[in-house]
């Protein structure tokens, strides 16, 4: 019975879905074009600022971006060792 219905009914048009998906995706991709890698830049600058005060392992600085439908979140995860030394620059101050 389902098969029969499927034969009779016209398949729903998928082109409008394709069009909408493309428009959303390209609006996003065009915004990024020509810019340096945003997360890379953020990570380097955050690392530089924090390193002025605490000695850090650069590999323990993780910056993630999660793009949601309405808002995006930026997650910065910096692991600081418990016996972290203050950096020389901070100590000298």
């Amino acid at each position: 019975m389902m098969n029969l219905l499927r034969l009779i009914s016209r398949p729903t048009a998928s082109a409008p879905v394709a069009r909408e998906r493309l428009q959303i995706l390209l609006a996003h991709e065009r915004g990024l074009r020509g810019q340096p890698d945003l997360l890379g830049v953020l990570r380097a600058e955050i690392l530089a600022v924090v390193s002025r005060h605490i000695v850090l392992d650069p590999d323990q600085v993780i910056v993630k971006m999660d793009r949601g439908k309405h808002v995006s979140t930026l997650e910065v995860d910096i692991e600081v060792p418990n016996h972290a030394k203050r950096s020389i620059a901070a100590a000298a101050r």
């Binding site: 048009a13 082109a15 409008p16 394709a18 069009r19 493309l22």
Partner: peptide, 9 residues
Amino acid sequence: RGEMLSIDD
């Protein structure tokens, strides 16, 4: 039939 992106799209 709406199965393929149109020229206008």
